[in-house]
């Protein structure tokens, strides 16, 4: 598994702790994939209208649409998914279709969320297996903004739990084909998104462990919002050991900037805080590398006013760079 093959799977499930930018990363990976010429579908499963806001488009719904060239979007609503499923199996043959549908929908969404997840993954599998008339797969890559790490294991385990609970019938048959898709490392990878901070790293390590236990293949770990290192070793040493407020004040005065002793002191305090964060980044990165044995794909902190399509594009640039082998010139 290397970073360069990230986009060569059929299905990427992007997950991460709340607040790490999982949806933005999913969007960036999908954009990078579409730019590489792959017909790509970006899927939202929790109906939060994240992507329509991010890309500034009309609201997404339960029909795939090409919102950018080669890039399709879909918001899976489990209830719509269930209706489609019931139609598929029972069609319009029953007079009481309306009754069947509404009660069954109520049943599945309120009483047995595991079944809801199965239907949701089922929709993804249908897209993953769909072929055009020429026999080629309809989509080259499907990128799912999956539930967060706290829920991802239960989400992916839903087909399995269903086979335990439901002993026969189409749901059981379908559940098995979903398990086959999810467990196939060539088809499906889970992409964990993290920050180089303590809690997200801990949750990533725990999530990776649980996912590996259930036999799901992990893709590269995406490290979001990486601060560029500002100080080289010599400068770091100068700040931590050599510079005192008076010295700094004098040096700045030579360069034409007057600061008070308190100002010089505050600058050094600021630097100490910043160096602390850089140090935390380094130790977090080491910890991830040592404990996971997975390649890391780092995306930069953007320092922009907003976060919209342009910023997704900037992250997509970084993804493209990472998956493109270095040209030998």
């Amino acid at each position: 598994m290397d970073v360069a093959s990230l986009l060569d799977r059929r299905l990427l499930l992007v997950t991460g702790k709340g607040g790490v930018g999982k949806s933005s990363v999913a969007a960036a990976v999908a954009v990078a994939s579409a730019r590489s010429g792959r017909r790509t579908c970006l899927v939202e499963v929790e109906g939060r209208h994240t992507f329509s806001q991010l890309f500034g488009t009309q609201a997404w719904d339960f029909s795939e649409w090409e919102f950018r060239p080669g890039l399709f979007g879909l918001s899976i609503d489990p209830e719509a998914s269930l209706r489609e499923y019931l139609d598929m199996f029972y069609g319009a043959r029953h007079l009481s279709r309306v009754v069947v549908r509404s009660t069954a929908v109520e049943f599945a969404t309120a009483a047995a969320p595991g079944i809801k997840d199965v239907l949701l993954i089922g929709k993804v599998k249908e897209m993953e297996r769909r072929r055009d008339d020429d026999g080629h797969f309809h989509y080259d890559l499907i990128v799912v903004d999956a539930p967060p790490t706290g829920r991802i294991v239960n989400f992916l385990r839903a087909p399995d739990a269903t086979t335990e609970l439901v002993n026969l019938g189409p749901i059981r048959t379908q559940a098995q084909t979903l398990i086959d898709m999810l467990m196939d490392a060539e088809r499906t990878n889970v992409v964990l998104v993290t920050l180089l901070e303590e809690m997200p790293v801990t949750e990533t390590l725990e999530g990776a462990h649980a996912l590996r236990d259930m036999g799901v293949a992990l893709g590269p770990v995406v490290v979001n919002r990486v601060m560029p290192e500002r100080f080289d070793d010599d400068e770091r040493k100068a700040i931590t050991a050599d510079l005192d407020p008076a010295g700094l004040q004098a040096m700045l005065a030579d360069a034409g900037v007057r600061v008070s002793p308190a100002g010089a002191d505050d600058l050094l305090t600021l630097a100490a805080g910043h160096l602390g964060r850089e140090e935390l980044q380094r130790t977090s990165r080491e910890l991830l590398e040592r404990r996971l044995g997975l390649p890391l794909l780092e995306l930069p902190e953007l320092y922009t006013d907003d976060f919209a399509e342009r910023e997704v594009g900037l992250l997509a640039d970084a993804v493209t760079d990472a998956v493109t082998p270095d040209e030998v010139s």
């Binding site: 500002r230 010599d234 770091r236 700040i239 360069a255 100002g263 600058l267 600021l270 630097a271 910043h274």
Partner: peptide, 30 residues
């Protein structure tokens, strides 16, 4: 500490030794 004054100083400090460069970086961090 204005951006204009600090900017000029950062440029001047960039050519110095580690301490000067560090001082310049402190200004840009600010």
């Amino acid at each position: 500490l204005s951006a204009r004054k600090a900017g000029a100083a950062i440029a001047a400090l960039a050519d110095g030794g580690p301490e000067q460069r560090a001082a310049g970086e402190l200004l840009s961090l600010h």
